[in-house]
C-alpha cells in the first residue's frame, strides 16, 4: 500500500510576460487501488499538475509538497521519480530519434527494476502486451513514437504503463484524440494495470467519455489552478450534463486560453 500525497502545491512558469502562477494550492491524496479523476476545462492547470508530478523542468514549485510514502518527490530528478514508481502517460509523447521501441523499452525496464529483465520472458511479455493493445508487431523495430499516429502514441504510452508496473500512474488526457475503438483498447489496458491491485491512478481528462470505461472512485473538479469541488463518481455524471460553466462563473474568472492545457 502506497500513498502519493500532494499538499498545498503552488506552481508557476516563466513566460515572456514574466512569472505566471498556474497551480494555486492543490491538495490531493491518492492511495494504491484508488482511481481519481481530475476534470476541468482547458487551461485550468490539469496538465501542469501532471507534468509537475513527473518533474518537467518547465514548472517551478514555489511552495507545497509532493511525497511518495513520505519521501520527498520534489527533491528527486525526473528519472528518480520514475524509478520510485511514478509514471506519466503523456498527452503529447515526443518522437525520439535513433532509438527503437525494443531498445527503449528494455533500457527503461532495466533502469526501473535496477536489473535487466530476463530476455526470454521479457520478449514474450512485450509481445503479449502489444497484442492486447493491438499494436502491430513491427512497431517494436521502429523508432520511439516515430511516425506513429496520435492514437498509436497513446497506446504505446499504455503499453509502457503495463510493462513498467508503476505505483502511481498519471494519465494526462490519454483519451484526447482517440476514436471509440481506441479509447476502449486503451481503457482496457489501464484497467488491467489497475486490476493488479498495486497501482493508484490519477486520470486527467476534459471529457467524461473515458469514465464510461474507467470507473473513478473520486472525482475532483479543477478550475483555475485549484480543486473547486470533490465527490464520487456521481459528480462526473453531473459534469456531463452541466459542463463546467457553473464553476467557471463561480470562480469569477474567465477561462484562460488553452495554452497550458
Amino acid at each position: 500500500m502506497s500513498t502519493l500525497e500532494i499538499k498545498d502545491l503552488h506552481v508557476s512558469i516563466e513566460t515572456e510576460q514574466g512569472t505566471k502562477e498556474i497551480l494555486k494550492g492543490v491538495s490531493l491524496t491518492i492511495r494504491t487501488g484508488e482511481t481519481h479523476a481530475i476534470m476541468g476545462p482547458n487551461g485550468s492547470g490539469k496538465s501542469t499538475l501532471a507534468s509537475t508530478i513527473a518533474g518537467h523542468p518547465r514548472y517551478t514549485v514555489t511552495s507545497g509538497s509532493i511525497t511518495l510514502d513520505g519521501e520527498n518527490v520534489l527533491e528527486m530528478s525526473v528519472d528518480e521519480r520514475a524509478r520510485a514508481g511514478v509514471f506519466l502517460a503523456m498527452q503529447y509523447p515526443v518522437e525520439v530519434p535513433g532509438v527503437t521501441m525494443t531498445n527503449f523499452l528494455r533500457t527503461a525496464k532495466t533502469a526501473i527494476d535496477g536489473e535487466a529483465p530476463a530476455l526470454r520472458t521479457w520478449t514474450k511479455e512485450v509481445k503479449a502486451a502489444m497484442d492486447q493493445l493491438r499494436i502491430d508487431a513491427d512497431f517494436a523495430q521502429r523508432n520511439v513514437n516515430e511516425g506513429f499516429s496520435g492514437g498509436e502514441k497513446k497506446r504505446v504510452e499504455i503499453l509502457q504503463l503495463e510493462l513498467f508496473k508503476p505505483k502511481f500512474a498519471v494519465l494526462d488526457e490519454t483519451d484526447s484524440g482517440l476514436d471509440v475503438d481506441a479509447l476502449k483498447v486503451v481503457s482496457e489496458g489501464v484497467n488491467r494495470a489497475h486490476a493488479t491491485g498495486n497501482m493508484g491512478t490519477m486520470l486527467i481528462t476534459h471529457y467524461t467519455r473515458i469514465l464510461r470505461y474507467i470507473k473513478p472512485d473520486f472525482v475532483h473538479v479543477f478550475v483555475d489552478g485549484k480543486i473547486v469541488e470533490e465527490g464520487g463518481p456521481e459528480l462526473a455524471d453531473r459534469l456531463e450534463e452541466e459542463g463546467y460553466d457553473r464553476y467557471v462563473v463561480g470562480a469569477g474568472q474567465a477561462v484562460a486560453p488553452a495554452s497550458h492545457a
Partner: peptide, 26 residues
C-alpha cells in the same frame, strides 16, 4: 529537453538517455 524528459520520465538516467539516442543515430 523534451526528448530528454521523455526518456528520463521512464527512469532512464540522463547520460544513458543521450547515449541511447546518439548510438542509435550513428
Amino acid at each position: 529537453d523534451e526528448h530528454l524528459f521523455y526518456l528520463m520520465a521512464r527512469g532512464i538516467p540522463e547520460d544513458v538517455a543521450r547515449r541511447l539516442v546518439v548510438r542509435g543515430f550513428l
